[in-house]
Design a protein around this nucleic acid. Structure first.
Length: 565
DNA sequence: CTGGGTGGCT
DNA sequence: AGCCACC
């Protein structure tokens, strides 16, 4: 037995707390809507109730249940739209700040799931009865843990972990109390000597509770969870792989010899799972740094028109650049995500992504402080054309855009890189201005193409930055990427009209929505004229009925304007 | 009739 | 770039 294995089995040197915010989205929504206090509440994204408060759960509402199902179980449930994650992100950041008061060793999984390695904090309390930096008093006299304890209380482990875990349970109370005091948000906690145990044990008693596990109960806890799918890291695919090998429970996993398992599922996975089955997990708490990507997605029933793709991407990009500004770092790559409608499966198809560099001149200059949204959209559309063959009909069910790499800034805003970047930015502004005329390119007005009047007539007399830059084929020094873009077809009236609509996130086509009870907002006359103005291939595309699971659609352009949510 | 994010591995 | 996983 080597020393690592030795450590894992009879020494338990680390002390880990897992903090899980109770039904996070639902709690945030209850804070936003105090009038819903005491009522069952669900958070809805598209047709899904992604989470609910505990009152709603009493009716049997589960995570990611369809709205219809949820309403059947609990007709009086209040449903709140949770597609915009801004508030959740906000609270998540506040929670992280509180956790950082205790230790920088915080690993986040999602917005509401955190591991803290408090080994050194516990050590300080063990040594001196307090932590000089962490100004929190802990009752060292009481030898009993706070909160629940999983498993029988057996004799102390010779490595001394019992005392450490008991102190940790008191620190967990402090953490939860501080989060509640500052934010009025409740959390549950799990305390153990590794991440696996801390996470699993914390889920035993919720909400607003905490549970400790001593190492001697580890194997028992793992037996208790039964299904292998409960092991963190074992998702749908791995579960199916294991089940196809007749392994359903953790005990099945335990009974399978390592050598046999390695042959079935691969050496790495086999070793990890065999360890986990015994409650062994040596993975470290990896402090979560800055996000590696910042992205937004929008899902929908179907998008088949380039104009709508452009419109939706424009909306996503505007919000994305806001997020990037909040983040403060400078993105240097852009990724586009699409999900194509899959006719073979009733469920959603797989995603495809395309990435490209984000040229420096697209970044906010220190002068204007804004992104050039028009060129960003042009770049995103270039990625789109690289992903989707628009010469054939396409039916997308999701569009996403993300910034995926960020400029390293060695120091603050006076660093040499920052200085150079400003010079470049200013230079590129000058270049554009001198070639196009300052009045034509409106750097200070993001996405003017989409923020112009709702009345499409304005668009016919004012050229957008996009059409301008294409029409003049401008060759600024920094156009090394954009000048490769094949010229977009001149905008049709339909496209102009569509892209000129004011949008709201996830509701871009609201103006186009037709309901049986409301009069049509698009007159048949305009309809025909718009249709005629389309290129012939687009006409065919727009008027073609595409196969669906339901009855064939009529050859009427209006159906493409009917709400797709 | 399945959400909107993230990160890691290959 | 895709797959898988997590919340």
């Amino acid at each position: 037995m080597d020393s690592i294995e030795f450590d894992a089995i009879i020494r338990h040197p680390r002390t880990i707390i897992h903090i899980d915010v109770d039904c996070f989205y639902a709690q945030v929504e209850m804070l936003k809507h105090p009038e819903l206090q005491g009522k069952p509440l669900g958070v809805q994204q598209k047709n899904i109730v992604v989470t609910s408060n505990y009152l709603a759960r009493e009716y049997g509402i589960k995570k990611c249940m369809s709205v219809q199902e949820a309403l059947q179980l609990c007709p009086e449930i209040a449903l709140v739209n949770g597609e915009d994650l801004t508030h959740y992100r906000h609270y998540s950041a506040k929670i992280l700040k509180i956790l950082h008061r205790f230790t920088p060793l915080v690993e986040r999984l999602g917005f509401d799931d955190n591991f803290l390695d408090i080994t050194s904090i516990v050590q300080k309390y063990m040594n001196s009865g307090n932590d000089s930096e962490l100004n929190i008093s802990i009752n060292m006299e009481d030898e009993n843990p706070v909160g629940k304890v999983f498993g029988p209380f057996e004799e102390e482990c010779p490595c001394g972990c019992h005392a450490r875990l008991i102190i940790a349970s008191k620190i967990a109370v402090e953490i939860r109390e501080q989060i509640y005091k500052d934010l009025h948000i409740t959390c549950s906690a799990g305390i153990g000597h590794n991440k696996l145990l801390a996470k699993l044990v914390g889920s035993l008693h919720k909400p607003n509770q905490q549970t400790l596990i001593f190492p001697c109960s580890a194997a028992m806890l793992l037996s208790t969870i039964e299904s292998v799918s409960k092991i963190p890291g074992v998702g749908q695919k791995t579960t199916q792989l294991l089940i196809s090998n007749n392994i359903k429970t953790v005990d099945d996993l335990r009974k399978t010899p390592l050598e046999a398992l390695e042959k079935k599922i691969g050496i790495d996975l086999a070793r990890k799972l065999k360890d986990n089955a015994e409650g062994i997990d040596e993975t470290v708490v990896k402090p979560t740094g800055k996000r590696q990507s910042i992205g937004l997605e929008d899902g929908f029933k179907s998008v088949s028109l380039i104009a709508e793709v452009e419109s939706r991407l424009g909306a996503l990009l505007r919000r994305l650049t806001e997020l990037a500004m909040e983040d403060g770092r400078i993105p240097v790559a852009m990724r586009l995500t699409v999900r194509k409608h899959d006719f073979n499966k009733s469920a959603s198809g797989k995603r495809e992504t395309r990435q490209c560099a984000l040229p420096k001149y697209l970044l906010p200059s220190s002068k204007s402080g804004v992104y050039d949204h028009a060129k960003m959209l042009t770049l995103a559309m270039k990625l789109f054309h690289r992903t989707v063959d628009v010469s054939k009909p396409f039916h997308l069910t999701l569009l996403g855009v993300a910034f995926t790499k960020f400029e390293e800034r060695s120091s603050g805003k006076n660093s040499i890189t920052s200085f150079l970047r400003k010079q470049v930015a200013v230079q590129s502004v000058l270049d554009i201005s001198s070639e196009e005329g300052v009045s034509d390119i409106n750097l200070g007005s993001p996405m003017s193409v989409n923020q112009d009047s709702n009345d499409g007539s304005a668009m016919s007399t004012t050229s957008s930055p996009i059409s301008k830059s294409i029409g003049t084929n401008n060759q600024t020094v920094d156009d090394d990427v954009l000048n490769e873009i094949e010229p977009l077809p001149k905008k049709t009236r339909l496209e102009v009209w569509l892209s000129g609509r004011r949008e709201s996130p996830s509701n871009e086509m609201a103006d186009l929505r037709l309901s049986p009870s409301s009069p049509m907002q698009l007159s048949p006359k305009i309809d025909a004229a718009v249709l005629k103005s389309l290129p012939i291939d687009i006409q065919r595309e727009v008027t073609r009925s595409w196969p669906t699971t339901s009855k064939p659609k009529s050859n009427n352009i209006l159906k493409y304007f009917i709400a797709n949510k």
